Computed example of a mutant assay.
Amino acid sequence: MFYTSQGYIIYAAILLLLLIFLGWLYYGTVYFLTEEVFTYRSGFFNGKIPVNQIRKVVASENLWYVGLKIALGAKNGLIIHYNKFDEIFIAPEQKEAFLSQLVSLNPAVKIEKE
């Protein structure tokens, strides 16, 4: 099978775009927790959750049943339950500090371990 230089350029461009996307996910995944809102961003996924709408946070190793996953780690993350049926999986670097700050901002949040 013979490959042309044009074929290699197309493959290289696709590979470069994939690497840029993965780098964007890796370096662009951030979480911000302020007094009023929890903000998350990972690549083109981003959003805001009002702190007073967060009902429960579950420290979990099982992320398979969670809807939206905004985390780089595949395990040992936090499942945030908010609104009535919404949930999101995140994996902050300092989970305990995140949880203590969240509880100080919203004392009604239930913290569970799975």
Rank of each mutant, 00 (worst) to 15 (best):
P107A: 06
V58M: 05
I111W: 01
E96K: 10
I111F: 05
K95T: 09
A97W: 09
G23R: 04
E87G: 03
L18S: 13
L99P: 00
I79G: 01
S104Y: 10
L16Y: 07
L18T: 06
I49T: 04
L17W: 00
V66R: 12
G77P: 06
G47V: 09
T29P: 01
S5E: 07
Q53E: 11
D86I: 07
L18V: 06
L18C: 10
I49L: 00
E61R: 02
Y11P: 05
S42H: 13
L15Q: 15
L99S: 04
Y3F: 12
L18D: 04
E112W: 09
E96M: 15
F32H: 10
T4Q: 08
E114F: 13
A91N: 07
I111S: 01
D86T: 05
I54P: 11
T34Q: 00
E87R: 00
Y31V: 03
V66M: 01
V109H: 12
L16R: 05
P92R: 15
V51R: 11
L68E: 10
Y27E: 12
P50Y: 09
A71Q: 10
F89T: 03
G7Y: 15
L18H: 14
K48Q: 01
I49D: 05
A12S: 13
L25S: 07
T4S: 14
E35C: 01
Y40T: 04
A12Q: 10
K113E: 15
K69A: 00
L78T: 14
Y8P: 08
